[in-house]
Design a binder for these strands. Structure first.
Lengths: 211, 211
DNA sequence: CTAGGATTTGACCGTTCGGTCAACATCTAT
DNA sequence: ATAGATGTTGACCGAACGGTCAAATCCTAG
């Protein structure tokens, strides 16, 4: 049986928008409903609680992230360098886009909820943790390929992948704190340093100007 | 005139503890007062609002951070490598300490507030931004010294310092999300890669086991 | 001793919070 | 046609929220 209405979808979409732009605590169920054009009773028909809505929103957000970023950027045979570059470029563009709409750099939807809620809500903490693990898996596979193809030398793959994911989160956090997407662009080059590359000498003073 | 009472201090200390362990939104004025052993009227005698308390708490937290971490770690003539190592070791120990008390890895008090509030409260965003800028300044000076002493080759100092601070925030975020301080230890080695070092070859397979 | 500021107290404010519920409407499968 | 599931509505709940205030108390300088 297909969905009879789009009510649930509208609520979910509102959660994606509002909680991302502000925070979990600063968006009430009432406001969520108004934004979705739905009455509170309907909300609780589809979601047992605000917390469950948030978990569903995290799932949805991760599905979107996969199909918009991680899939496109990592499911091809580009050099690792290029893949990482595309990620950072996407993040930069995306933060710019949202900022032009709401005036603020929102950062990463997963990192935001992680720092706001993971000491208070174990289920949400686990969910975000899982997202980061899967993200790391994408990066790890790309590193494996790069080693196999000889693009980069053998190294501790897991450690490198985790460092890259952490660095990316750090970049988003700094961009949000400075309310300036340009931070992501400035930090982009740094991500390559987290990988051991063939020759350090050859790249010192590497042609292109940053930013 | 010296402080007549320690009421203000107790409120401030409670804010440091509770907001750090949970979040801004999840700690109410009432609870803050109970934790400090103070009535709500007294709270508003010393602080015009919860928001102002939070800003004062940020100031205090930064003073403490300087005297406990950044001062000790950066105001000596140790090699840069050693300085960064000490920072990460301090973070690891600190997160372990708090976790043994409250069962949760709390992450960075500045990063937490930044991600929770910087899209909603410009004053707090600016304050955290300033903290990060000053942190970056510590790292930048240390990098300058390391270049002057010949420990590392010439490079873009500001870019390196900002990358290191971002990476550090990323490490704290991942540790909090995984609720495991060990993440900080695992990511510690990665910070050195953000600096261009003298010889890459010489360090490959470097003696000491990680973790 | 006393005046005046600093501090403390507890009752109180309106608002919003997340969540509930019974009644009602709509759809769909038989 | 109709029963039962699915979806919608608006009124309602107690609790907690941030914040206010006048009165009482304490401390200290003159």
């Amino acid at each position: 049986m297909v969905a009879a209405t789009d009510t649930r979808e509208r609520i979910l979409a509102s959660a994606l928008d509002l909680i991302y732009a502000r925070s979990y605590a600063n968006v009430g169920v009432q406001e969520l409903c108004e934004h979705a054009g739905v009455k509170k009773g309907s909300f609780y028909h589809f979601f047992p609680s605000k917390r469950d809505l948030t978990i569903a929103a995290l799932d949805r957000q991760w599905e979107l992230a996969k199909q918009r970023i991680w899939g496109p950027a990592f499911t091809n045979h580009l050099p690792l360098r290029e893949k990482l570059q595309r990620c950072f470029d996407f993040f930069y563009d995306h933060q710019c886009g949202v900022k032009s709409k709401i005036g603020m750099v929102p950062g990463c939807p997963f990192g935001n909820l992680a720092l706001e809620l993971s000491t208070q809500d174990e289920a949400i903490r686990r969910k975000v943790d899982q997202v980061f693990r899967e993200t790391t898996a994408y990066v790890r596979r790309a590193i494996e390929e790069a080693i196999a193809s000889g693009e980069i030398p053998k190294q501790d793959i897991s450690a490198a992948a985790e460092a890259i994911v952490a660095y990316t989160q750090g970049a988003m956090l700094m961009a949000k704190t400075r309310n300036d997407p340009g931070v992501i662009k400035e930090l982009r080059q740094g991500v390559f340093r987290l990988l051991q590359t063939r020759s350090t000498k050859a790249r010192s003073g590497n042609g292109k100007k940053c930013v």
